[in-house]
Write a protein that binds this DNA or RNA. Structure first.
Length: 724
DNA sequence: CTAGGGTTAG
């Protein structure tokens, strides 16, 4: 019934010289040759069957394909194309074989295998994309030394002998090895898969033989094994198998894995389970992009996924900042009717909050109610936190409203809820509101913890209310709460910003005295303070000290030092420092560039600063408001208002809307040019856009307009200006 | 397996 052609030049266990050319005939066309993992010396070759008859067997009396095999591929030496001669001397052994399994699917499988030298490079003309295939793989090393046949055939009727299964179940590998020295591992594995052998045994053999013969079975065989495990409900074993598969496999595309899964078994349910576990395995192995691709493909194939894989996928995409993909997965989950739970929704809400899509996040809460999933305290905490961090004007009012809603639907706020609100009010420079929430928290019977106090202490420090901050620190100690490094960082920063370096240094020394390890933030805070104090030697000395203690400078450290040197006008040392930073594989970030842009502008070199802006775009950094505002300020100071306004246009083209600082810079620029009417126009424009003028706006208006006898015409807005 | 605190630039 089955005739396969031998390699026409084949001799059993053929041994060829590495660089010999060898013609071979097979029943298929090579459809692809791909590299496998760089650590394994494998290639993967795909053949395409030219003809298979109704019975699914391959009928042939003529060789269909004449493949010419020649050349070599080196993985150790990299390049695919020019490797033919270069790699040979480095190969460990002169024997290189190709193993090919022939799998005329979707009928009952019949298998064949034959060996070929590894120096096989299919002619491009043989490449063909039919999905019917022969497939095989190349490997280095003389595996089947005992084999007398270059070609072996066997059919699925063959069952492994009871002796073999017995040996496997007893893990008597040595005996097994002698027993099947004339068979190939693939033959035996195939037999185990086709017979009703316990899948646990097959798995055991699979693992042993891959290790023993240093080979890697094809994806199709792996998938067949997965199917048999799935049918026997061996889920934990499937999980760990797929975990290992995904971990070691670096070159097999998601699409070929899907193809293999779908052709290796016909149980739709098993397919779905395998794919679900595959997605999870990708995510757990930090291959989120592949997990995402598998998620999409599962939709194409109609395989049903579960929260077990989709939630970790959502979470991983979130952590990668791929919010667009998070939204896609979320919408697909709905569309495909994948079960969703509160964790799925919370993850999506968190993602949307992180990018400031607060209205969308609120919509998701409505979605979840519609799906019969009740929001929990985490859902609300996430949303409140989003409003506190990303909300615009009136954000705290909104956050408070969400708290009210929680009470209304009887979701009890916890310590974290209150901590988020307290921190939000502190950041909003509304300490009195923060203190009110602090009291409310205790009224509700919830105990403030270290985080609560840290938020309040930091809020007070940023307002310069240092005595009160220290008072709170005493209070927390009195309650048995131990100040931690974050507490100290906040306090140190508060003293530094007030110019009280002596107190800051004392606190810094207290940190170590109290058995707390300073963090990079502690050091950076002190270093920055030294720089701003003009004590560059102290700053550099502390940098040395931190390295000695095993904490290494990061970009922020360098930014502070660079800014300090720029203030001194010490451009040479700045250059050295930047080089040093790059040598340590630290990348300059937006802040670094902003510091340099500012330095150039202050030297009256705004054009050069503008070139720096182009440079940052080129290296993939996105200029932010500070960048544009700094550059605009530079042009304004040079009296080049036209250039400044062009920067504003450029900024808005890049999706950055003018903020208060932008207006302050431009208003001042116009005033300096005597264009008070235009400045007044901008002032109105700013107010119409709902931007709240700050202290600086007020100063500019006062100094440049009012004191020069020009009364700004900002009717209806007069209050907000004078109140600033 | 989802929520909270501290550093640098305009």
């Amino acid at each position: 019934m089955l005739k396969l052609l031998c390699l026409n030049t084949a001799t059993p266990n053929l041994r060829v010289k590495p660089d010999s050319n060898l013609a071979f005939h097979s029943l298929g066309r090579l459809t692809g040759l791909t590299r496998r993992s760089p650590t394994n010396s494998f290639f993967r070759a795909c053949f395409c069957s030219d003809s298979s008859d109704e019975s699914g067997s391959v009928s042939s009396s003529q060789p269909v394909v004449k493949g010419e095999v020649k050349g070599a591929e080196s993985e150790a030496n990299g390049s695919d194309s020019k490797a033919s001669s270069a790699i040979m001397p480095t190969c460990p052994k002169p024997e290189y074989y190709l193993t090919v399994s022939v799998l005329p699917l979707p009928r009952r499988p019949l298998f064949a295998e034959f060996y070929m030298p590894i120096h096989v490079k299919p002619h491009l003309s043989l490449m063909h994309s039919k999905p019917n295939f022969f497939h095989g793989k190349f490997r280095l090393g003389n595996i089947y030394t005992g084999n007398k046949h270059a070609l072996r055939l066997f059919s699925s009727d063959n069952a492994p002998s009871p002796i073999v299964t017995e040996l496997i179940s007893k893990q008597q590998w040595k005996s097994l090895k002698t027993h099947h020295k004339n068979a190939s591992p693939i033959t035996l594995l195939q037999q185990l898969l086709d017979s009703k052998t316990d899948p646990d045994l097959t798995l055991r053999y699979f693992k042993w033989s891959e290790k023993e013969f240093n080979l890697s079975y094809s994806v199709e065989l792996s998938c067949k094994l997965l199917h048999s495990l799935a049918n026997a409900k061996r889920y934990p074993k499937m999980r760990s198998f797929l975990h290992g598969f995904v971990k070691n496999e670096n070159s097999i595309s998601v699409s070929s894995v899907f193809h293999a899964i779908s052709v290796s078994g016909d149980s739709f349910c098993a397919n779905s389970i395998i794919v679900d576990m595959l997605v999870l395995a990708y995510v757990e192995n930090m291959k989120t992009h592949l997990g995402f691709e598998a998620f999409k493909r599962a939709g194409d194939y109609g395989f049903k996924l579960s929260v077990i894989s989709c939630n970790p996928l959502l979470s991983a995409l979130m952590k990668d900042g791929k919010i667009g993909d998070v939204e896609y997965v979320y919408e697909e989950m709905m569309r495909r009717r994948i079960e969703v739970n509160v964790i799925s929704f919370n993850t999506v809400i968190n993602g949307l909050c992180k990018v400031g899509k607060l209205n969308k996040a609120s919509d998701v809460i409505q979605d979840m109610k519609a799906w019969g999933v009740l929001p929990n305290v985490i859902t609300y905490n996430t949303l409140i936190s989003g409003y506190c961090k990303k909300g615009r004007i009136g954000k705290m009012y909104k956050a408070d409203a969400i708290l009210k809603e929680m009470f209304a639907i009887e979701v009890r706020p916890n310590e974290i809820t209150f901590n988020i609100l307290i921190d939000g009010f502190c950041k909003d420079e509304n300490l009195s509101a923060a203190m009110k929430v602090f009291e409310e928290m205790q009224t509700q019977g919830l105990k403030p913890n270290v985080v609560t106090y840290n938020s309040l202490i930091n809020g007070l420090c940023l307002e310069g209310r240092l005595d009160e901050a220290v008072g709170l620190q005493d209070e927390m100690v009195g309650l048995g709460l131990k100040p931690n490094v974050v507490t100290y960082n906040a306090l140190i920063n508060g003293f530094c910003k007030k110019g009280k370096m002596k107190e800051a240094t004392d606190l810094f020394n207290d940190v170590v005295k109290n058995g707390i390890s300073p963090t990079i933030i502690t050091y950076n805070t002190m270093i920055d303070a030294y720089c701003k104090d003009g004590r560059m030697e102290d700053a550099f000395a502390l940098r040395e000290a931190m390295v000695d203690r095993g904490t290494f400078p990061n970009v922020t450290t360098y930014n502070s030092l660079i800014a300090g040197l720029c203030r001194e006008g010490n451009i040479t040392v700045v250059r050295n420092l930047i080089n040093e930073m790059l040598n340590k594989a630290l990348k300059a970030d937006v802040v670094t560039y902003n510091i340099l842009v500012d330095a150039l502008c202050k030297e009256g070199e705004s054009r050069k600063a503008a070139r720096l802006l182009d440079e940052m775009v080129k290296i993939g950094l996105r200029p932010n408001h500070v960048t544009y505002n700094t550059l605009m300020d530079g042009y304004c100071r040079e009296g080049n208002l036209r250039a400044a306004l062009n920067v504003r246009t450029q900024m808005e083209k890049e999706g950055r809307r003018a903020n208060v600082v932008t207006y302050n810079v431009l208003i001042k620029g116009l005033c300096k040019k005597g264009k008070l009417e235009d400045a007044n126009g901008l002032l109105n424009e700013m107010l119409e856009k709902g931007l709240i003028p700050n202290r600086r706006t007020y100063e500019i208006v006062k100094e440049e307009m009012v004191e020069k006898g020009f009364v700004p015409d900002i009717e209806g807005h007069l209050y907000s200006i004078s109140a600033s």
